[in-house]
Design a protein around this nucleic acid. Structure first.
Lengths: 211, 211
DNA sequence: GCGGAACAATGACATTTGTCATTGCGTCTG
DNA sequence: CAGACGCAATGACAAATGTCATTGTTCCGC
């Protein structure tokens, strides 16, 4: 099925996959193994395992989910780049969020794929990225640069806790702030995001990938 | 009309899969196709397609996600049972929610698997279910029967909107109720769920699968 | 070294939210 | 048929939330 791989029999592409849902992890591995020119050399189910696996196996391409226990895929990508690891990185996620994409590219990722793309595109993306190309949904890329995250660190922190249902008082003691200060930050965040209350603000920030 | 596999269990198991994330759909199909005795005869990316595919192909087993466009996997399962379709149904989802499991079994499903189980268990579950057995995580099953959904329809409705960040006033006009009534329902829901505010209540209800 | 930004706080105020008691209506169900 | 339950509403009250003005601090860039 693949002319390049079968004809020239070049070194197969070595891949490591990180994904916390075992079913999906196994399935993606099966999907890639079908391709003659790709070999899955290791699997990881959380961020820490992923780093160990990549450093040990030095694969050509590393595919990772974002939302994982211990360490997110974005954090793993940043750490690998910090260690000058030459492995190309593809982020594979459910979420078409501008903020995620931006952070992914900042962290040195070469690709950003959505899980609702066609399955065939995964293997193709692996080959593209290995050749040094970038693979990013053009529509999402456009959106990513249009609107930068307006929140400060404190606003983000406070908003995250508020979105989980904590009261201003709870948040204040969690962060060792006064309750008034917490209300100030929330008020700022609400106005910056054009929301009318903390819950809506948190929802908006979440969909943009700013939380 | 009905090619039953009762020979010398040499016949392949025919399967239909429904899953809205293309990448996962393709990957799961690949995973099952690896098994010599299972064949994926159709794929669907939403609830409506799923029903059509199952009715047309009459597979031995139907595997479906819950959260899909057009119609949820639970609704699909209920509809198939209503039409006396003999196909065995496996729900495959991310969420270990008691409410989901209960509704799945009510809808006549034979299996309830979590996406974070080991990938090898899927094929095994297909075979088990085809033999007429049930496949349900025992831990989750225990929880499902322990705690029934305490919310009334109105409480659920109001809580859902509140969880999206709407104010009591918004919810009132959305549902053509007075604002006081909305507050009453929310107060009831908060107390029933042991929460301290609407956001926490919505969060709790969501994790239990009651929303 | 000056201005700007993020951080932190206080006080005052209006609005929203959560609670409770109470009433009324309709629909089941034993 | 009585009683239970869900639905819908009102009024009153306390608590939480959101807004604004104002005052400090520190740190960073120009």
């Amino acid at each position: 099925m693949n002319p390049v791989a079968t004809k020239t029999n070049r070194t197969t592409l070595r891949v490591v996959i990180a994904e916390d849902q075992g079913m999906v992890l196994g399935a993606l591995a099966a999907l890639l193994e079908i391709e003659g020119d790709i070999s899955v050399v290791a699997r990881a189910r959380n961020g820490k395992e992923a780093i160990d696996a990549v450093l040990q196996h030095k694969p050509d391409v590393f595919i990772t989910d974002i939302e994982m226990p211990v360490m997110t895929g974005l954090e793993v990508a940043a750490e690998l780049k910090r260690q000058r690891c030459p492995t190309r990185i593809i982020i594979l996620t459910t979420f078409a969020r501008a903020g995620y994409l931006r952070r992914a590219l900042d962290a040195g990722a070469s690709g950003y794929l959505l899980k609702d793309m066609r399955a065939e595109e995964l293997a193709e993306a692996v080959r593209r990225v290995h050749r040094g190309l970038r693979v990013v949904d053009p529509e999402l890329a456009a959106e990513a640069w249009s609107e930068p995250d307006p929140l400060t660190d404190r606003e983000r922190q406070v908003l995250r806790l508020a979105g989980e249902g904590k009261s201003s008082g709870d948040i204040a003691s969690d962060l060792s702030l006064s309750e008034g200060t917490v209300r100030n930050y929330l008020s700022e965040a609400i106005s910056k995001l054009g929301a009318t209350n903390r819950v809506e603000a948190a929802r908006i920030a979440r969909t943009k990938g700013w939380l």
